[in-house]
Amino acid sequence: MILVDRISVAQGAFRLDEVSFRIEPGRYAVLMGRTGSGKTTVIEAIAGLRPVASGRILLDGRDVTRLSPAERGVGYVPQDGALFPTMTVQENLAFPLVIRNVRPAAIRDRVQELAGWLHITHLLDRRAVRLSGGETQRIALGRALAFHPRILLLDEPLSALDEETRESMLAVLETLKRRKEVSVLHVTHHRTEAERLADLLLRVEGRTVVDARTAPTPPMAADAFVPDAC
């Protein structure tokens, strides 16, 4: 479960105030908003990459507000994938497990399992450079899921993909949603993508986040607490 409780994040002149929402275990939430509205800031705050000025972030009931990114146990896929270019695809997928000192045999099994599911088995021995947008996103997703996180954060995972690749990546995300093994927060500015995937649809409105399915437009007051819609 992801519980964001009245967090405020400032970055230069830009800030988000009193952002609150809750994503129940295994649910798929989509956060929408215009470019530059601060969607990525919310994801980075949950991942621990951006300090919050006030408020709390609870992941599966644990207050992680002051914890390092490593201690949060969150799978994170940035917009550009950010694969490790000096490693092979296999090494990228295995990385979180190697860091956790998992047995080599177990790492091999997990990498094969992920590669099979994401249809990237043929890429395993390649260096993680000069891959297509779709391949990069699949590998980044596999790497983020390798250590069985309970929380998954996706930052515009489909934005750089062409129509065909987008469709197959959407199918992967729908499988992920059906399995209900992770709570997902997926950031996008694409309405149809959001409608198709979301159990809970959130929207950055002004300086805060509201439930897009219940909130009236124009923007609600900054102190609105958005209850779980599911």
């Binding site: 950010a82 000096t86 490693m87």
Partner: peptide, 28 residues
């Protein structure tokens, strides 16, 4: 890009490990 080391940290690395395993090899 600082992005790769940030991702490494979310994957379980300390700042130190992210530097050794992810940044320094890219700086070869």
């Amino acid at each position: 890009s600082p992005r790769t080391e940030q991702v490494a940290m979310t994957l379980g690395c300390s700042r130190h490990q992210a530097f050794w395993y992810v940044v320094l090899p890219q700086a070869g």
